[in-house]
Amino acid sequence: MNSPSISGRPHGGDSRSNWQALWKYRHFYLFVSPFFILFAIFGLYPLLFSLFLSFTKWDGITAIHWAGLYNFRLMIHDELLWRSLWNTLVIGVLYIPPMLILAFLFAQILNSQWLKLKSLYRAAFFLPAVTPMVVIAVVFSLIFSSERGVLNYLLLSINHLLPFLHLQPIHWLDSENWSKVSVAILVVWRWTGYNMVLMLAGLQAIPIDYYEAAQLDGATAWQSMRHVTWPLLQPVFRFCLLLSLLGTLYMFDEVFVLTNGGPGTSSTNFGLYLFNLSFTDFKFGYASCVAYSVAIVVFGVSLGINRLNRRNSEVA
């Protein structure tokens, strides 16, 4: 701590100088107080109340019933919960690799010296990240439409030109097998530009000397990418990956508007499941329990990954 006076024992003189220090810096406390007040109301209290709710049964209207560990036992047998977590995983696996590769590719190209019209390309790829998801999901449901959608029209046209591919129209939104793919496509479209911008910032932070040195040593373009860009971009990559994983878990708008989790529950991710539990079924107690448990597991896992990463980077 900066100020020695705070650590004093409760001697008369010390505590007076404590008060003096606090008074001297009263503006500091005044200026930061809005955060702490709002956090107490809309952060800390909800955090504690939701922990309490985890052990109760409550619909938000009638009296709260203490339920002990009942909710936790319920979770084990809640097929929809496990299904939604599984869907989250599948959607993540479907979209994260193509999205990060595409974002890296775009960033790499947009970072090259010779490219003209950079801001135009960047705008095109980035625009999806600033547009309201509702509107986009509605447009996509038009594009994905089975009988009259543009996407199936293109598939059929390609099939017409190259019949040996045997392309069939796909039931993008009304087949259990394809609904997750459709969500994944929407997410790739929406978030690639965002990740591109993050990676571009990472690339621009790499000193140009490194590349010059690599070139002097006779490295090819591929080698300097493999041995300069790749290792130095690791932190950004890891950050993008973490954001995407968390994003998939708590994603809502995309799924809610495009498929509403369907058909059946084939595209219900955790975010939508939790929302339905809370604000369709009004199972506030159980929903709190699920939200808490998953958050704790996620926190533990990311802590573990972080520690593993640190150890790895220490070894390297």
């Binding site: 909800p46 955090l47 709710l53 968390l246 708590y250 939200a291």
Partner: peptide, 9 residues
């Protein structure tokens, strides 16, 4: 703190 946890309260 994830927003999902504080939503209901």
């Amino acid at each position: 703190i994830p927003g999902a946890v504080t939503l209901i309260p």
